[in-house]
Design a protein around this nucleic acid. Structure first.
Lengths: 339, 339
DNA sequence: CCGGAATGTCGAACCGGTTCGCAATCTCAA
DNA sequence: TTGAGATTGCGAACCGGTTCGACATTCCGG
């Protein structure tokens, strides 16, 4: 493998000159530049990433911390990963994917050893173990998901409160008076998935204000449990005319359940979900939904992270907490409540 | 950030001694070892990955090349990624995830710049552009998917021929005489997804030998197209009593389609798919299926790759082409053909 | 009591880049 | 003609590890 020394020799110049010719950080005569570039081509030279990282303390790699937990729905995570990966590449960065169950260990490893210039944390919990480690690290970090304490990090998340209100208001406007909300598994909440509460509380408050009934349940993240739980819910509350689904697995299982019960949408039941359009297409879910915009969130997180890495915004400049406004994608699954 | 020089100074020894004390590559007195370890703890020392990579020419990183193509079903890919990532971590390696659409560019970048010690290629096509680049690289590579030319790489794949035979034989044994096979989109085949042909040809041959009819179609990888195509298929061949599904999107869409047509499984139609158990659970697919074992394939690929990286098998030792035998997971979706 | 082996430590070189300071040459206006 | 300033190239140091060869001690058998 050719080194910059080989290039320099082939071009008849010193190593430093070759380096400057390639980086353009100092002026170089046209002739020398040509000879260096030629040598690069002839030798097939590519800089050694490790050496460059050592010299510049920049790796051009971003750490992506994603946990595939038993009680979460993996395909939903994939879209965040894609958003992050694509944006990173556009900006010239590669992605180090860390999927260890023990996220703290993984985070510590990649930051302490300086394998990455910054990190994106997915699926951030309210009191996330990884945050203290991230704050102690010398690299900047961007989060997808809202923790209790946002100091020292840039945060991006869907506005789940607004999402909860939107769902309730929409069905209230159509005349519904008894709704059910299907949330994530209780485990997710215990672990600190605050977004579940945020949506649920806002929905409950909106229901209270409107004077309508809202039954909330926690459902599993897997079949066949979640299917059974949906059945139980509909058995327990026969008066429910509208379903709010804040649980990807439940959304994916719903068509089968409704079919088994012979219920049509929106004739017998109105349904609004909370997932991405991509997700809806993948699972052919025919329900109107609040767009959760994973690609957009991933993109925003990386953009901001790179701005910090490249010093466009200093480490002391105030950190960002930005919420994406939920948008309702209409798939005609809501209507007037059945009589 | 502490360097090994800081550790050495704190322990009152030279840098080389500190290094040997930590690596254990030379004998060190108990006293010195203790002092060095203490200094490491006190200073919170972690070796700099770039410096180590430069010195040892080992990065402890594996490149994972995964393309998310428009005409493939992303959630199916995720399981390979998980298998690879988990196994890599167990063996002490991190994962550099390269998702560029132009896989050749990404592969060249990570190998030429020596960011990785080896690479795993997912979703390998029959004549895969990435293979010439991989062969020219100085790092070893492991493939998931069977190319036409396997020289210089280790290859792992499901035995799709056997899978095709298994599907046909199973339904033949139950008395079926007219079957339909739903394959991947034609694009996938044109691009060289040979596994589609391998299964299809073997199934066709088995059908010929048994004297039964097999209709084969290519279906899309997305809703709602794939749903429509399944309807068309069933309309066009009313005599079909068994369905073979070698297309994840079609499998995911099938429950809805069958439901719409009022068909029950296996009463009206027997169904066998080809996907992983994990996939079946995620999409709650109630069909018997050939296990495609993505986690196992990912694991095998990484294991072998690491063996090459660490020199346990030399670069000249013969390369492996290993097929995983398909196993039928019975979910009671097959039975005698309807009258 | 001596010679050779085993043990423990150090200095220096090296991996392959980048960057700083200096010097030589060139340009152009005074 | 001269000197200030710009242009261009070079040497050396540095980033933070690893490893080789040399050297000093200690241990052992004869």
């Amino acid at each position: 493998m050719a080194t910059i020394g080989d290039v320099a020799r082939a071009a008849g110049v010193s190593r430093s000159t070759a380096s400057y010719a390639l980086s353009g950080k100092r002026s170089i005569s046209a002739d020398v530049r040509r000879r260096v570039e030629e040598a690069v081509r002839d030798l097939g030279y590519t800089p050694n990433a490790g050496a460059r990282a050592l010299a510049t303390s920049q790796t051009m790699v971003i750490g992506l911390l994603a946990q595939f937990l038993e009680d979460e729905f993996a395909p939903a995570m994939l879209q965040y990963i894609q958003g992050v990966a694509n944006t990173a590449r556009e900006l010239g960065y590669d992605i180090l994917l860390v999927t260890e169950v023990d996220g703290t260990r993984g985070l510590r490893r990649v930051t302490d050893s300086r394998m990455v210039d910054g990190v994106v944390l997915l699926n951030v919990a309210e009191h996330d173990d990884r945050l203290p480690i991230l704050r102690a690290a010398s690299q900047p970090g961007a989060l997808v998901g809202l923790p209790a304490d946002c100091t020292g990090v840039d945060v991006f998340d869907l506005d789940f409160e607004e999402a909860g209100r939107l769902m309730v208001d929409d069905l209230h406007r159509l005349g519904h008076r008894e709704l059910a909300l299907v949330s994530q598994p209780e485990h997710v909440i215990e672990r600190g998935g605050a977004y579940v509460w945020r949506l649920q509380n806002a929905a409950a408050e909106a229901a209270r204000v409107r004077g309508i009934t809202l039954h909330a349940i926690f459902a599993s993240a897997h079949q066949p449990d979640v299917g059974r739980e949906l059945h139980d819910l509909l058995d327990a509350h026969p008066g429910v005319t509208g379903l709010l689904i804040n649980n990807e697995a439940a959304a994916a299982a719903l068509p089968t359940v409704l079919h088994a019960r012979g219920l049509s949408v929106p004739g017998d039941l109105s349904v609004i979900g909370r997932y991405s359009d991509e997700f809806a297409r993948t699972f052919s879910l025919p329900y109107s939904s609040i767009e959760s915009a994973p690609d957009r969130l991933g993109r925003m997180a990386v953009r901001q992270l790179v701005r910090r890495i490249e010093g466009e915004v200093g480490p002391d400049e105030p950190h960002v907490v930005r919420f994406v406004s939920p948008e309702l994608v209409d798939r005609r699954s809501t209507g007037a409540p059945r009589r």
